[in-house]
């Protein structure tokens, strides 16, 4: 095709980032940010929201052979906006409306509405995620052990 395809990595990387952010976002937080957008654009379903299990894997010893830990609940869906843009969502948990909002955001981020979506949905969600993570990390840091060496007497 064109130069568009020459370096797809940054586009894919940006989409990976927002899809991951949406997957991890608390249901009520995405709903609140999504509500600020006003009217929901018209769309048709390519795959209606469906809840299933994803088998989570680890590695023996952290780095060795893969093994199955257990499943997690995931809800996925796919939709198409009237202009033909396709949005996908894979979100943690069982909330179908959450998956629908995530797929709509994914689709809108590929349209001219991207800057507005970025500013009113993704940026605030990312900031909240950082704040939550930092708050935990700060509590954790306060429990770091400081060792004192006892004076032994022989100098």
């Amino acid at each position: 095709m064109t130069a568009h395809c020459a370096d797809p990595a940054p586009e894919i990387s940006a989409r990976r980032d927002w899809m991951g952010l949406l997957a991890r976002a608390p249901v009520d937080r995405l709903a609140a940010r999504f509500a600020t957008l006003g009217d929901v654009p018209a769309f048709s379903w390519l795959r209606r929201p469906e809840t299933g299990g994803v088998m989570v894997r680890g590695r023996a010893g952290g780095t060795g052979a893969p093994f199955n830990i257990g499943e997690m609940t995931v809800t996925r869906c796919a939709l198409r906006l009237e202009d033909g843009t396709v949005g996908h969502a894979y979100v943690q948990g069982r909330d179908k409306a959450h998956a629908e909002r995530a797929a709509l955001v994914d689709a809108l981020m590929q349209t001219g509405a991207a800057p507005r979506i970025e500013a009113s949905v993704l940026r605030p969600l990312a900031d909240e995620a950082v704040a939550t993570r930092t708050a935990r990390a700060a509590r954790s840091a306060a429990t770091r052990v400081e060792f004192f060496t006892m004076v032994r007497g022989e100098d």
């Binding site: 469906e50 809840t51 299933g52 299990g53 994803v54 088998m55 989570v56 894997r57 680890g58 590695r59 952290g62 780095t63 893969p66 199955n68 830990i69 499943e71 609940t73 995931v74 996925r76 894979y90 993570r133 935990r136 990390a137 509590r139 954790s140 429990t143």
Partner: peptide, 23 residues
């Protein structure tokens, strides 16, 4: 309950070395 869930797939092995550690 989990027997009623369709299996969507399997994850990549998680990287515990990159864990955001509480402890």
């Amino acid at each position: 309950y989990r027997t009623t869930l369709p299996r969507i797939g399997a994850s990549r092995p998680v990287d515990t070395g990159a864990m955001a550690c509480d402890r």
